[in-house]
Protein backbone atom coordinates (compact mmCIF):
# COMPACT_ATOMS: atom_id res chain seq x y z
CA UNK A 1 0.00 0.00 0.00
CA UNK A 2 2.82 2.38 0.96
CA UNK A 3 6.37 2.09 -0.29
CA UNK A 4 9.12 4.41 0.90
CA UNK A 5 12.53 4.35 -0.78
CA UNK A 6 15.70 6.24 0.21
CA UNK A 7 13.80 9.13 1.71
CA UNK A 8 15.87 12.10 2.95
CA UNK A 9 14.92 15.29 4.73
CA UNK A 10 16.86 18.03 6.46
CA UNK A 11 15.82 21.24 8.17
CA UNK A 12 17.30 24.58 7.21
CA UNK A 13 18.96 26.30 10.17
CA UNK A 14 21.08 29.47 10.36
CA UNK A 15 24.07 27.18 10.72
CA UNK A 16 23.18 25.25 7.57
CA UNK A 17 21.03 22.19 6.81
CA UNK A 18 20.39 19.86 9.74
CA UNK A 19 19.68 16.32 8.50
CA UNK A 20 16.68 14.61 10.09
CA UNK A 21 16.96 11.39 8.11
CA UNK A 22 18.85 10.57 4.98
CA UNK A 23 18.11 7.09 3.70
CA UNK A 24 14.81 5.73 4.94
CA UNK A 25 13.20 2.80 3.17
CA UNK A 26 10.23 0.73 4.34
CA UNK A 27 6.78 -0.30 3.28
CA UNK A 28 3.38 -0.84 4.87
CA UNK A 29 1.07 -3.49 3.54
CA UNK A 30 -2.64 -3.16 3.05
CA UNK A 31 -4.48 -3.48 6.35
CA UNK A 32 -1.26 -3.41 8.38
CA UNK A 33 -0.98 -1.21 11.50
CA UNK A 34 2.44 0.19 12.33
CA UNK A 35 3.67 2.34 15.21
CA UNK A 36 6.37 4.93 14.62
CA UNK A 37 8.33 5.78 17.74
CA UNK A 38 11.33 7.88 18.61
CA UNK A 39 12.56 10.69 20.82
CA UNK A 40 11.12 14.18 20.61
CA UNK A 41 12.54 16.11 17.66
CA UNK A 42 13.84 13.03 15.85
CA UNK A 43 11.62 13.70 12.83
CA UNK A 44 8.68 11.31 13.37
CA UNK A 45 6.00 13.94 12.67
CA UNK A 46 7.94 15.29 9.70
CA UNK A 47 8.15 11.79 8.24
CA UNK A 48 4.42 11.32 8.73
CA UNK A 49 3.72 14.68 7.10
CA UNK A 50 5.87 13.75 4.10
CA UNK A 51 4.10 10.41 3.73
CA UNK A 52 0.71 12.17 3.89
CA UNK A 53 1.78 14.62 1.18
CA UNK A 54 1.65 17.56 3.52
CA UNK A 55 5.36 18.30 3.35
CA UNK A 56 8.06 17.78 0.74
CA UNK A 57 11.11 15.55 1.26
CA UNK A 58 14.51 16.50 -0.12
CA UNK A 59 14.83 13.29 -2.08
CA UNK A 60 13.58 9.72 -2.26
CA UNK A 61 10.38 8.09 -3.34
CA UNK A 62 7.01 7.65 -1.63
CA UNK A 63 4.61 5.38 -3.51
CA UNK A 64 0.95 5.42 -2.52
CA UNK A 65 -1.20 3.22 -4.69
CA UNK A 66 1.73 3.14 -7.11
CA UNK A 67 1.86 6.94 -7.44
CA UNK A 68 5.03 8.73 -6.37
CA UNK A 69 3.77 11.65 -4.32
CA UNK A 70 7.17 13.29 -4.63
CA UNK A 71 6.48 13.85 -8.32
CA UNK A 72 3.04 15.37 -7.83
CA UNK A 73 2.21 19.06 -7.67
CA UNK A 74 0.18 20.60 -4.85
CA UNK A 75 -3.18 20.03 -6.54
CA UNK A 76 -2.45 16.39 -7.39
CA UNK A 77 -1.12 15.71 -3.91
CA UNK A 78 -4.34 17.20 -2.51
CA UNK A 79 -6.36 14.93 -4.78
CA UNK A 80 -4.36 11.91 -3.69
CA UNK A 81 -4.84 12.85 -0.02
CA UNK A 82 -8.58 13.22 -0.33
CA UNK A 83 -8.91 9.81 -2.03
CA UNK A 84 -6.29 7.68 -0.32
CA UNK A 85 -5.16 9.24 2.94
CA UNK A 86 -6.84 10.07 6.22
CA UNK A 87 -4.86 12.17 8.71
CA UNK A 88 -5.46 12.57 12.41
CA UNK A 89 -3.43 15.13 14.33
CA UNK A 90 -2.91 15.56 18.04
CA UNK A 91 -5.32 18.52 18.14
CA UNK A 92 -7.16 21.12 16.05
CA UNK A 93 -8.28 18.55 13.49
CA UNK A 94 -11.71 19.99 12.96
CA UNK A 95 -13.14 22.74 10.82
CA UNK A 96 -14.43 25.27 13.34
CA UNK A 97 -17.16 26.72 11.09
CA UNK A 98 -18.88 23.38 10.37
CA UNK A 99 -21.11 21.34 12.61
CA UNK A 100 -19.92 17.96 13.84
CA UNK A 101 -22.14 16.24 11.26
CA UNK A 102 -20.57 18.27 8.45
CA UNK A 103 -17.08 17.74 9.84
CA UNK A 104 -17.60 13.98 9.88
CA UNK A 105 -18.80 13.90 6.28
CA UNK A 106 -16.38 16.51 4.96
CA UNK A 107 -13.60 14.40 3.41
CA UNK A 108 -16.00 11.71 2.21
CA UNK A 109 -18.01 14.36 0.42
CA UNK A 110 -14.86 15.82 -1.10
CA UNK A 111 -13.85 12.40 -2.39
CA UNK A 112 -17.41 11.66 -3.49
CA UNK A 113 -17.47 8.48 -1.39
CA UNK A 114 -19.97 9.39 1.29
CA UNK A 115 -21.70 6.25 2.53
CA UNK A 116 -24.54 7.36 4.80
CA UNK A 117 -25.00 3.97 6.36
CA UNK A 118 -21.32 3.71 7.22
CA UNK A 119 -21.38 7.22 8.59
CA UNK A 120 -24.31 6.36 10.89
CA UNK A 121 -22.42 3.31 12.01
CA UNK A 122 -19.36 5.46 12.79
CA UNK A 123 -21.42 8.04 14.65
CA UNK A 124 -23.00 5.37 16.71
CA UNK A 125 -19.74 3.54 17.42
CA UNK A 126 -17.98 6.77 18.37
CA UNK A 127 -20.92 7.87 20.55
CA UNK A 128 -21.44 11.12 18.71
CA UNK A 129 -25.21 10.95 18.17
CA UNK A 130 -26.04 13.82 20.51
CA UNK A 131 -23.23 16.04 19.27
CA UNK A 132 -24.02 16.21 15.56
CA UNK A 133 -25.49 19.72 15.53
CA UNK A 134 -22.81 21.20 17.73
CA UNK A 135 -19.67 23.06 16.65
CA UNK A 136 -16.11 21.93 17.48
CA UNK A 137 -15.63 24.76 19.99
CA UNK A 138 -18.52 23.33 22.00
CA UNK A 139 -16.87 19.89 22.40
CA UNK A 140 -14.30 18.56 24.86
CA UNK A 141 -10.84 17.47 23.67
CA UNK A 142 -11.77 13.79 23.79
CA UNK A 143 -14.98 14.37 21.86
CA UNK A 144 -13.07 16.38 19.25
CA UNK A 145 -10.57 13.57 18.74
CA UNK A 146 -13.40 11.07 18.31
CA UNK A 147 -14.86 13.30 15.61
CA UNK A 148 -11.41 13.58 13.94
CA UNK A 149 -11.15 9.77 13.84
CA UNK A 150 -14.67 9.56 12.50
CA UNK A 151 -13.92 12.05 9.75
CA UNK A 152 -10.72 10.22 8.72
CA UNK A 153 -12.53 6.89 8.64
CA UNK A 154 -15.73 8.12 7.02
CA UNK A 155 -13.95 8.47 3.70
CA UNK A 156 -12.74 4.85 3.95
CA UNK A 157 -9.28 5.81 2.71
CA UNK A 158 -6.89 2.88 2.39
CA UNK A 159 -4.21 4.70 4.38
CA UNK A 160 -4.54 6.32 7.76
CA UNK A 161 -1.85 8.48 9.38
CA UNK A 162 -2.19 9.45 13.01
CA UNK A 163 0.19 11.85 14.72
CA UNK A 164 -0.08 11.19 18.46
CA UNK A 165 -3.89 11.19 18.21
CA UNK A 166 -4.33 10.85 21.96
CA UNK A 167 -1.43 13.07 22.98
CA UNK A 168 -3.64 15.86 24.25
CA UNK A 169 -6.07 13.59 26.14
CA UNK A 170 -6.09 12.26 29.67
CA UNK A 171 -5.39 8.57 30.24
CA UNK A 172 -9.01 7.39 30.39
CA UNK A 173 -10.03 9.35 27.31
CA UNK A 174 -6.88 8.28 25.45
CA UNK A 175 -7.61 4.63 26.11
CA UNK A 176 -11.23 4.96 24.97
CA UNK A 177 -10.32 6.84 21.79
CA UNK A 178 -7.51 4.46 20.91
CA UNK A 179 -9.68 1.38 21.38
CA UNK A 180 -12.33 2.85 19.12
CA UNK A 181 -9.80 3.85 16.48
CA UNK A 182 -8.09 0.47 16.32
CA UNK A 183 -11.41 -1.34 16.14
CA UNK A 184 -12.64 0.86 13.33
CA UNK A 185 -9.34 0.65 11.40
CA UNK A 186 -9.64 -3.09 11.57
CA UNK A 187 -13.19 -2.89 10.29
CA UNK A 188 -12.24 -0.68 7.34
CA UNK A 189 -9.15 -2.79 6.58
CA UNK A 190 -7.11 0.41 6.22
CA UNK A 191 -3.38 0.57 6.75
CA UNK A 192 -2.38 2.63 9.79
CA UNK A 193 0.82 4.44 10.60
CA UNK A 194 0.69 6.01 14.03
CA UNK A 195 3.29 8.26 15.63
CA UNK A 196 3.39 7.66 19.38
CA UNK A 197 5.65 7.96 22.39
CA UNK A 198 3.80 5.27 24.25
CA UNK A 199 5.28 1.77 24.17
CA UNK A 200 1.95 0.45 25.49
CA UNK A 201 0.07 1.88 22.54
CA UNK A 202 2.72 0.68 20.10
CA UNK A 203 2.34 -2.78 21.50
CA UNK A 204 -1.30 -2.81 20.46
CA UNK A 205 -0.30 -2.41 16.78
CA UNK A 206 1.05 -5.15 14.53
CA UNK A 207 4.48 -3.67 14.09
CA UNK A 208 6.62 -0.89 15.54
CA UNK A 209 9.45 1.13 14.00
CA UNK A 210 11.77 3.48 15.88
CA UNK A 211 13.38 6.48 14.28
CA UNK A 212 16.73 7.14 15.91
CA UNK A 213 19.51 9.38 14.59
CA UNK A 214 18.00 9.39 11.14
CA UNK A 215 17.60 5.66 10.83
CA UNK A 216 14.71 3.28 11.31
CA UNK A 217 15.13 0.27 13.49
Amino acid sequence: MLQVTRLAKSHQTPQGPLPLFSDLSFDIKAGESVALMGESGCGKSTLLHILAGLEQADKGQVLINNQDIMQLNDSDRALLRRNYVGVIFQQLNLIPSLTIADNLAFQARLAGTLDTEWLHNLVSTLGLETLLTRYPAQLSGGQQQRVAIGRALAARTPLLFADEPTGSLDEANAEQVMTLMLALVKETKSSLLMVTHSALLAARLERAMTLRQGHLT
Partner: peptide
Protein backbone atom coordinates in the same frame (compact mmCIF):
# COMPACT_ATOMS: atom_id res chain seq x y z
CA UNK B 1 -7.75 20.83 8.39
CA UNK B 2 -9.35 21.53 5.01
CA UNK B 3 -5.97 21.38 3.33
CA UNK B 4 -5.10 18.16 5.18
CA UNK B 5 -8.36 16.62 3.96
CA UNK B 6 -7.28 17.08 0.38
CA UNK B 7 -8.24 20.58 -0.75
CA UNK B 8 -5.37 22.11 -2.69
Amino acid sequence: PIWACGVS
